[in-house]
Simulated assay, not measured.
Amino acid sequence: MSDGNDIPDPAAARPPEDTRADVTLVGRGVTVDAGVEVSTEFGIVVRPVGVGAGWKTAVTPGDDVELYWRSRDGERTMPARIVQVEAGNEPRWHLAATGPAQESRRRKAVRGRVALPVHLPWSDGQLVGETVDLSESGALVLVDGWGLPPQPGTALDVSITVEDDVVRLRGRVVWHRTSGARWLVSLSFAGIHERDEDVLRKRVFQALREERARAR
């Protein structure tokens, strides 16, 4: 008898209603969090979430987007196009799919400028500084350096303080640049736990919303 796992997951074809999805504005390279209000074979309506309204109505019909969401079987992506923008205090974007949903092997990282305390154990000591920008796949950090800087490819433990939480990650140096006693280090993350990924993404989205509010 079937245990239900062989039943096709509707969320594999389109994001379910009353859930959240990431919407990437392809022409701008910006990803926003959105609530899915309507999702049928005829179209999808999303409500972008965040402070301010200007950036939500700056999009126009014809703009290409990419949707990202999670189904039972993993992450999914689907290309779409904005066909209508409803103005108001809570704008809605009406989307039409321009291609089928596919498996997303690597969710696009959302990067934002955010300064958070960071600690990197290094050479029997610890490098202390803050993030310059951040995503769930990596970070650019500025630290007080001493001795010789870590070379590209060096594996490092990374601790980032997010409010009352400390996210501990395994990073690898992509490149570094020294400026006197300070080092600018680009890091990529590997094997990040889903819980830590969600913490970082939530903080990055908060930073993006704050940035948009200041730009109003």
Rank of each mutant, 00 (worst) to 15 (best):
I82H: 09
R170I: 05
E130K: 09
R113E: 10
L156R: 00
R209N: 07
A96Y: 13
E194V: 08
G145Y: 01
R201I: 04
P10Q: 05
P15D: 08
D18E: 09
A87M: 05
P15G: 06
H176P: 02
L184G: 04
P149S: 11
P121W: 11
P15Q: 15
D6T: 15
R170G: 06
R70V: 14
T60S: 06
D18K: 12
G29L: 10
T131H: 06
Q102N: 10
R214T: 06
V110D: 00
L25F: 07
G50D: 07
D63I: 10
D133P: 03
R177Y: 13
R195Y: 11
L184V: 11
V118T: 06
T77E: 11
R14P: 02
A181F: 06
S123N: 15
T19A: 15
D198T: 15
R201A: 06
Q126S: 11
R20K: 14
G52R: 01
V51N: 05
L120W: 02
R201M: 03
V118M: 10
G52V: 00
K108E: 05
R203Q: 09
D165L: 15
D73H: 09
V85C: 04
I192K: 05
L116K: 12
G153C: 03
T98H: 09
E210N: 07
L140Y: 03
G62A: 04
W146G: 13
E210P: 01
